[in-house]
Design a protein around this nucleic acid. Structure first.
Lengths: 116, 116
DNA sequence: CGGTATCCCTGCGGATACTG
DNA sequence: CAGTATCCGCAGGGATACCG
């Protein structure tokens, strides 16, 4: 019987659990689609995210090394975000997942509808 | 500026948010690796999931049409689970994501370590 | 502009006990 | 064996207000 947590904690689960939060993937593909973006640009593009969660999620992505944060010493301040190499390498996999979702969501949503 | 929620709610987000929960992907790849499995088999394979969450997650996957549930009228009861076609079609994308995680987790975990 | 700080609430998911 | 039912804690995340 094959399992996926060989012994102790599984680092794959750990890494993937981060991407499974509400905003990470969306921010990543947004940065990929638009290149370097300012904080306010991301916020305008994903307009239903709270300022707090945008900051928190970006910080996590930065910590993990998926996003690079660049602060310019100007007034008013300017902060730019872009994908790192490793962040960029993740994009195809997210896109493929999104592609699958796009292909199958109509069926899935229909399936859910029957529950009513 | 490209965004990913054209108007109103985005169904892609909706579908993906289900997979983003704690157990769905793990159950799917477990079923894929082992074929048809009984409830207790899945539980033994993923031994740190609670009985409740295994039931709940399996029901959701069944509702979405990713997993098929087959009950045998026996005593003691036997219930078998297997991937549906659509569930099976998702596997490669999960595997590719897991592969990426496996490739990059050492760097990511190291990056996180610096925060201490 | 790009954040922090604070408060608070929802709901995911764990623990435990019971059942057909 | 394969579930339900119930209770409950906690973390994710929203709203609001304030700051350099």
């Amino acid at each position: 019987m094959k399992n996926f947590h060989p012994t102790g904690n599984c680092p794959i689960r750990d890494v993937l659990s981060r991407l499974g939060d509400k905003w990470s993937m969306l921010i990543l593909i947004t940065l990929n689609a638009n290149g370097t973006m300012r904080f306010s640009d991301i916020h305008k593009t994903i307009d239903d995210i709270s300022q707090r969660m945008l900051t928190v999620t970006l910080r996590t992505l930065e910590t993990d090394g998926l996003v690079e944060r660049k602060v310019y010493a100007e007034v008013p301040p300017r902060v730019e975000y872009r994908l790192t190499e490793i962040g960029y390498s993740l994009i195809p996999h997210i896109e493929s997942l999104a592609g699958w979702a796009l292909d199958h969501m109509s069926v899935i949503l229909k399936n859910r509808g029957i529950e009513a």
